[in-house]
Design a protein around this nucleic acid. Structure first.
Lengths: 242, 242
DNA sequence: AAAAAAACATGATGTAAATCATGTTTTTAA
DNA sequence: TTAAAAACATGATTTACATCATGTTTTTTT
């Protein structure tokens, strides 16, 4: 399924396998009756690398859940520099808050890293669900709390650490949260260029390349964008907080 | 009242003027019956500059609201460097999320900038309140969403901007959100040293001093820690995004 | 399979900001 | 009110990193 990600196609979810949706913590905690109701309001969208899900400054209309693939949250400066704030993975919620404000606008752009499926729901249905279901609201609070901690940890790293430490932190983070086991070490599950990494740690592509070359020489990592492998997680951790 | 901030004193709130608490958005939306109930569970704490409210790594026990004064959220690195993530002002909630996790620990230290009063409530009472009151939960979601946006905006600024731009952004932010009118311009309502500023924008004290001297020369600001005045907000805004 | 476009690589040079250093002024505490 | 401690100030030196530049390899597209 989902083998047709042409140009942002959308599907009704009403009678899709509920199995797939059990990976999503927020949906798991609903009563099965309420889950049925929620499924009525959710639609599935497909996007490719070239699409944008929404752009910085757009009015907020929907609450979103990543079903499949990776989505990056990006902000850009007037001079055209970009900064990637967060990689969203399956199960992650987004715009669970911005939607809370009347006339709110998206603070950043959401862009797929490849082919992705997104579940979404309009504001009204979303808030109705939260009001019916206090445990769902608390689940969202939990999720937002996590995101806030991550964002603050990221700010700390940006404020205090050198570029190589920031990059090491990033790799440790991605490996820990999203890495999959591999004979050679830990494989990162998304295509990630040096440029992507640079945008995530606030440095230039050239610097990211130089640092990654050093990491490669020191057997901390191997491979490039298409197949990036963490070979020495402990080594990277040591570097990150040294 | 609250003229006795010796060593973290605490008071019952049960029969205190409910007027004072109407500044706090979260409490305002409760039904008056439920507000009474919540007041039973809230206690007021007093702290001074020298105290810490809680320390990074401490287990989370309470949900907090700033009633009076300013509280800073700080993280520190193994080498002793410090980074101030956020200034909390009256009405701000904190630990509205960390408390959500069993065995959670505080991701940062909370420290008063002077004499402060804090309202607090234990985890259980807090979550009971949220479960009884979906609108309160949504208010917390709103608040967390705001905090997340701020944190991400801060990360962006740290990642992309020069030190003088970061400092200008900080001053614009503080002036806009917390500044009070003054014959000379906009006065910042808390004592704020060059060192404090440096910790907030990820630079050194010396650099913050040099930049502030330049801002002073250019008539963008005047005064020092005890009485810091923004004289040309537009000028600072221009610098922040230049 | 060939052409085009990204991604990766590495050197040379410039610069923002850290670090070290020393002195003055202001604030806080005894 | 005087001593001690922060806070503010400014110069000299070093350094991490950006910028510019040019070339190779890999990936994507036609």
């Amino acid at each position: 399924m989902s083998k047709r990600p042409d140009k942002s196609s959308s599907n009704r979810l009403s009678s899709s396998p509920p199995d797939e949706l059990n990976h999503i913590p927020l949906l798991k905690i609903l009563s099965s009756a309420d889950r049925q109701r929620v499924l009525q309001d959710l639609t599935e969208q497909h996007y490719t690398k070239r699409d944008v899900i929404f752009r910085e400054g757009d009015p907020t209309e929907f609450f979103h859940i990543v079903k499949e693939g990776t989505v990056k949250c990006v902000k850009s400066s007037p001079e055209g520099k970009e900064c990637t704030l967060k990689m969203l993975m399956p199960g992650d919620l987004f715009c669970c808050d911005a939607a809370a404000f009347e006339g709110a606008r998206h603070p950043g752009t959401a862009q797929p890293m490849g082919d992705v499926s997104i579940l979404r729901m309009n504001k009204k249905s979303y808030f109705d669900m939260l009001r019916r279901n206090p445990d769902a609201a608390i689940e969202v609070i939990k999720h937002l709390g996590n995101r806030l901690n991550e964002a603050q940890e990221k700010a700390k790293v940006l404020a205090l650490d050198r570029a190589d430490q920031r990059l090491a932190s990033l790799l440790v983070d991605l490996a820990t949260k999203n890495g999959v086991k591999d004979p050679q070490g830990i494989k990162l599950p998304m295509r990630l260029t040096r440029q992507d990494m640079a945008n995530m740690v606030g440095t230039t592509t050239e610097t990211a390349i130089r640092i990654m070359s050093r990491f490669k020489r020191d057997r901390l990592v191997s491979g490039t964008a298409t197949r990036l492998i963490i070979r020495d997680l402990a080594g990277l951790k040591a570097l990150a907080s040294a």
